[in-house]
Design a protein around this nucleic acid. Sequence first.
DNA 1: ATCTTAAGTTTCTTTAAGAAACTATAGCAA
DNA 2: TTGCTATAGTTTCTTAAAGAAACTTAAGAT
Lengths: 172, 172
Amino acid sequence: MQRTTFSAQHCSVARTLDIIGEWWTLLILRDIFYGVRRFEPLVEQLGISRKVLTHRLKRLTEENILRKVPYQHNPCRYEYRLTASGLDLLPVLLVLMRWGDRWLSEDGQAPVEFVHADCGQVSTAKVVCAHCGGELTVRNLRPQPGPGAVLEEIESMRSASVNPDLFKKIRL
Amino acid sequence: MQRTTFSAQHCSVARTLDIIGEWWTLLILRDIFYGVRRFEPLVEQLGISRKVLTHRLKRLTEENILRKVPYQHNPCRYEYRLTASGLDLLPVLLVLMRWGDRWLSEDGQAPVEFVHADCGQVSTAKVVCAHCGGELTVRNLRPQPGPGAVLEEIESMRSASVNPDLFKKIRL
DNA sequence: ATCTTAAGTTTCTTTAAGAAACTATAGCAA
DNA sequence: TTGCTATAGTTTCTTAAAGAAACTTAAGAT
């Protein structure tokens, strides 16, 4: 009767959420992106219990999203830095922020905005097709089994869906 | 001693996670995006407990991410459909999937891929600047207080950070 | 010798998750 | 009439996780 793990599913959303979908985890990462790297400041900034913070930092370090870097000796103290895969979570935070700005802030009054140094403008994140740069919508995306698919799971999802063509392989 | 709510923070990431960051929620939304709209199929497809599914569907409906649509009378039965704000969560799922494909699937064998009907290619999601279309990275983004900022929170984050210029207002 | 700082541990209480049985409503079948 | 099925939940009981607050450890500073 422990909490169900998502990592058994052959689904990248499920596998990702199994790691970063726990309560507090993405807020911890947000703070680390802002440069809050040490235990005490994270406790104070987040208002998280020390026990939970300990667990989350341990898990994220095990999953190679954070790494501990010593910043002092005698006694040795560590801070938490983002690894390459951790840095690659920035788009996740940007997209969550974008959604909250749109749907949860009063009259679109965003609490934080980003200046994009490359173009000099206040920037909002947009998710596009890496190939053509066009918008990705429910209408123009056709999911199909990928190379890592498990056919029983695909079949099961198809039969549970109102869309009978779901996951039908498309000839390009 | 109930679970801490994130919605008090003036941060769109926190507010968003307060709603869609609960255990199971994004997987429920994934299934609904795939067309699994009814209670029983969701239970079977996800392997979620009926109690938790009930709670999550109720919350998502209250938050106007889903709405109940009757599909039969005598007895009246409802299915759950995405609202406009719910449909706008597609980018969140695409970005989570992209991260999992990159970092969690064996040799990049994605379980699911999407054909982008507009360009005809197998598409991966990419997060770019809505203004110039350029990449958004830790290096080229300068966070600054937005119109909905609360100065004490901004100051608190700045002083907890290793970056003394964090949230320094930029003159464009 | 005691104080302080940083990073946790430990203990205790409450809440949430999971499993499985139970309920409600109505159509249909014998 | 009685009973079976389907769908969408409720209820009950057990275990795990979250939260609050006190405690620990280690070493330099006062």
